[in-house]
Design a protein around this nucleic acid. Structure first.
Lengths: 126, 126
DNA sequence: CAGTATCCGTACGGATACTG
DNA sequence: CAGTATCCGTACGGATACTG
């Protein structure tokens, strides 16, 4: 697999690309995607394992991901009800570049923190 | 260059990774980074070329990127003053995975829009 | 269990005016 | 030119209570 596609950035296309990226940018989507990457998951499992997410936000995040075709929702009508979420093929393909970005963040975390400390240390105004 | 680093996701690390990603997630950082990827740029050029950004937001975005060590700021004391921004090595290294994500977004834009249209079409409540 | 409905604070970001 | 300072609306997201 090549790292092709010079990613055109004509304003028109760029706008839509931005919209797609804003989904990645929201507070929880990436965490949910990364969690679902390992295996499909029930609602309550996600709630437990995606650290700090509220019920409301988990629902909203999953609905948006479902709407974008990144996650599929499977209801098993039982008592109590059971709902499983899993990444679609599209979702899995997104997980790859997201993962790359996560790896970058992890690898360069220390350097970023150092830069921040240095920046904050050069006190502009006491 | 290998695509190593399985990106650990222990809660502790994940939190910091999330913080780094939230910078990517904000409304303008990615656009500015992509613009600076081509070549360094003056403040006013960025304002003109990053479509729709306000003066205030451009300043804030650049300050944050500078603080993270992703962008460097060079002042030329002349009249009128001249300030150039360019990606640091760290900034360039970030641009790669960001670019990959952008390419993904571009390639799958149509599929996402189709999924949205389908989702919205299955009207749950009229 | 897997949600929905309300309420409510705050952070984000735009518009505008001013400045070294 | 390259900013800073203010003001101000809205969207995001948390807490809480309720439900099929």
């Amino acid at each position: 697999m090549e790292v092709t596609a010079p990613a055109p950035c004509r304003p028109s296309a760029c706008l839509k690309v931005s919209q797609v990226l804003s989904r990645i940018g929201d507070k929880w989507s990436v965490l949910v995607i990364m969690r679902l990457r390992e295996r499909s998951c029930r609602f309550s499992e996600l709630k437990r394992e995606v650290d700090g997410i509220s019920q409301r936000m988990l629902t909203l995040t999953l609905r948006n991901l479902e709407r974008d075709g990144l996650v599929s929702r499977t209801v098993t009508p039982s008592i109590p009800p059971r709902v499983d979420y899993e990444l679609t093929a599209l979702g899995h393909s997104l997980a790859e570049p997201v993962q790359a970005l996560g790896a970058w963040a992890f690898q360069n975390m220390a350097q970023i923190e150092a830069a921040q400390a240095h920046y904050d240390g050069g006190e502009r105004r006491p």
